[in-house]
């Protein structure tokens, strides 16, 4: 029986040290550690996320894909700057870089925009990767650099032709799914432009990929969202957050429509989050960072197993 950990003791020590540095950092900055439920009444609305349903005596509960909604309810209740280090759960396929259960750092900073938040993420990443310098570039700039279609301006047919030309196998429904085509383009841009040896904050996303980020008007308007990519690995995803209930409800409706179009089960909308936003969320920016992936890069591993205590029990 193979009962031994997949992480060697030095990797376990590196994990413990990183968590301690993060807690010290936030302690010194006056950011409060919080602890919200992992079992929730609703699952993720995002069509690309699959929540794991848990049958409980009083009904179905869902393992949280991130502590975002619960933490926003704390923000609306006046908690101030907060952070959490917790487990997050995803029901999707597992891979070298994906596990059904993983460790996430999520934090919210009042009055920050996405650029100030990137500064703080860079500070935290430096605890594990002191040598890496992190470039900043917009999604449009990366697309231009790689001579790919502009994700803000290209029409859907152009995006579909581009994807097919790059080997995507698309059904007619896929070829009309602009969000899917932009996801393909983003994956392509990251693989070609931000692979091994590269490290960058990619920011200002097309509106279709705004998730719950604020939109900055302009020509074109952009979503104030960022992703941190190091060696082709997505490490963090942050937003200058939407704070009004009406916009959030519209974003939920858009996700529900996309789920329906893709034949996915409809989401249960988090009414408590909408009520919290209705009562007032302070202007803030928030981010989720994958602790396991950060450790993986710090230790030069190419798979998550060597940094997770028992990284292969479920796969």
């Amino acid at each position: 029986m193979d009962w031994r950990p997949t992480a060697a003791r030095p990797a376990l020590l590196a994990r413990a040290a990183l968590l301690q540095q993060i807690r010290q950092h936030f302690g010194a900055a006056g950011v409060m550690e919080v602890d919200t439920p992992l079992l929730g009444l609703t699952g993720a609305a995002d069509p690309a996320l699959q929540s794991i349903a848990v049958p409980c005596a009083d009904g179905t509960r869902y393992l949280q894909t991130s502590p975002e909604f619960a933490m926003k309810r704390l923000l609306a209740a006046g908690a101030g700057d907060i952070y959490q280090i917790c487990k997050a759960f995803r029901g999707e396929e597992q891979s070298r870089l994906h596990r059904g259960e993983f460790t996430m750092l999520e934090f919210y900073r009042l009055g920050f925009d996405h650029h100030r938040l990137m500064d703080e993420v860079a500070q935290i990443v430096r605890f594990a990767l002191p040598q890496r310098s992190l470039e900043r570039l917009t999604v449009a700039a990366l697309a231009a650099r790689l001579a790919c279609p502009d994700p803000h301006l290209a029409d859907t047919a152009t995006l579909a032709d581009f994807a097919r030309g790059e080997g995507a196998v698309l059904s007619p429904a896929d070829a009309a799914d602009r969000v899917l085509l932009l996801d393909f383009l983003l994956e392509h841009l990251v693989r070609l432009g931000l692979g091994s040896g590269q490290a960058a904050f990619l920011y200002d996303f097309p509106l279709e990929q705004r998730a719950y980020a604020r939109v900055r008007p302009g020509a074109p308007p952009v979503a104030e969202r960022f992703e941190l990519i190091i060696d082709g690995v997505e490490l963090a995803n942050g937003y200058h957050e939407v704070t009004d209930a009406e916009t959030q409800a519209a974003l939920f409706a858009r996700e529900a429509a996309l789920r329906a179009a893709r034949g996915l089960p409809p989401p249960l909308l988090d009414q408590q989050l909408l009520a919290a936003l209705d009562s007032g969320l302070p202007p803030c920016a928030g981010v989720a960072l994958g602790i396991d992936r950060l450790l993986m890069l710090a230790l030069g591993a190419t798979d998550l197993s060597p940094v997770m205590a028992f990284g292969r029990d479920l796969i």
Binding site: A48, V169, E187
Partner: peptide, 23 residues
């Protein structure tokens, strides 16, 4: 089968850009 022609899978990797659709 791809385009009516038999193919053998040599390598397979699941990839997922930030928050989006997995491929």
């Amino acid at each position: 089968m791809l385009d009516g022609v038999p193919h053998n899978i040599v390598e397979n990797e699941m990839v997922k850009p930030g928050k989006g659709q997995a491929f």
